[in-house]
């Protein structure tokens, strides 16, 4: 029982980080109808900048730099590559971002090589104990930051002018532009937010209990793809819930690997995708997705 609770809580916190990355994914999809596979390498970029900068400028400033770098990189992908072929079909755009992802990730992993770059978080490997459950402090912080950011996103989406513009553009871009909403600006903002979220996700994904920034961190963002699909491509709420589910599932399957060994070893990496497929069998547009999107 204790193991289950520990795993479950650990999974929730890990899931909170996935939620952040997935939320960025959904934001971009809603605003520009692009399935942004470059999110993974942008995450790696953010983490890389933080890891490289923290020794010279301090952790707080390094985080700011990392978030900024990721946001700028993300906006550039949109402005330089996507904008001019905005009306291309979903597949073309997705493959384009996949290409960007491969380029950026390859360059970054070449720079990182086999090194393990410390992210320099001041909380290090501290552990917080609540009701007998011991969780890494960085994960608790991640959960808190994720909760604040998700709530902030929700409020901004719901109540600010920007939120209204974004949702209008998401629903019917042409009509939104007829209402004077500048689609390129909305798109740039969405991409910037996605980049920033990726960098923050990257910060926590490479903090303890992970060792630090390695070349393969970009692959971690792959885990958010089942989260996004699970939640429904265009639903921020779905992305958050999907992230939590994937976090819990992957930690639980790893933790009960021995009991599940009849399914084969190394299940942790596959389980999120299996869960995704199961959900899609029952609900083809994800938990909260609108039908139109999956039909595209």
């Amino acid at each position: 029982m204790n193991q289950f609770v520990t795993l479950f809580v650990g999974g929730l916190f890990l899931g909170a980080i996935y939620s952040l990355v997935a939320l960025g994914f959904v934001t971009v999809f809603k605003a520009t109808h692009v399935i942004n596979f470059a999110q993974g390498s942008v995450l790696l970029l953010g983490a890389y900048v933080i890891a490289r900068a923290h020794e010279s400028v301090g952790f707080a400033l390094a985080v700011a730099l990392g978030v900024l770098a990721a946001a700028v990189a993300s906006v550039l992908i949109d402005a330089v590559l996507i904008r001019r072929i905005r009306r291309a079909d979903l597949g073309t755009l997705a493959i384009l971002t996949l290409g960007v992802d491969i380029l950026l990730a390859t360059e970054l992993s070449r720079r990182i090589g086999t090194d393990v770059l410390n992210i320099g978080a001041p909380w290090g490997s501290d552990v917080t104990e609540v009701a007998g459950i011991r969780v890494a402090t960085s994960r608790v912080l991640a959960g808190g930051v994720a909760a604040v950011l998700v709530a902030g996103f929700w409020l901004a989406f719901k109540f600010t002018d920007f939120g209204i513009a974004m949702r209008s553009a998401a629903e019917d871009g042409e009509v939104a532009s007829l209402m004077g909403i500048r689609l390129n600006r909305v798109a740039a903002t969405a991409w910037a937010l996605a980049g920033a979220l990726a960098a923050i996700g990257g910060l926590f994904l490479t903090s303890f209990p992970a060792a630090g920034v390695t070349g393969s961190v970009g692959l971690l963002a792959l885990a958010t793809i089942p989260a996004v699909v699970l939640g429904g491509f265009d639903s921020p709420g779905g992305a958050v819930l999907g992230g939590l589910i994937i976090g819990v599932v992957s930690v639980l399957t790893a933790g009960y690997q021995e009991e599940l060994s009849f399914l084969g070893r190394g299940l942790g990496g596959v389980a999120p995708f299996a869960v995704m497929l199961l959900v899609l069998l029952v609900r083809p547009s994800g938990l909260f997705g609108t039908r139109e999107v999956t039909r595209v």
Binding site: Q3, T6, L7, G10, G11, L14, L205, T206, P209, A210, A211, T214, S216, V217, L219, L220, L222, S250, V251, L252, T253, A254, G255, Y256, Q257, E258, S261, R265, G266, G268, G269
Partner: peptide, 23 residues
């Protein structure tokens, strides 16, 4: 031997450690 197989992409050993602890 309690086996825990992982791939180089796995960076977070939370589940594995928990399984070791339980066993």
């Amino acid at each position: 031997i309690l086996e825990q197989k992982i791939t180089p992409a796995d960076q977070d050993m939370t589940g594995q450690v928990s399984a070791f602890k339980k066993a």
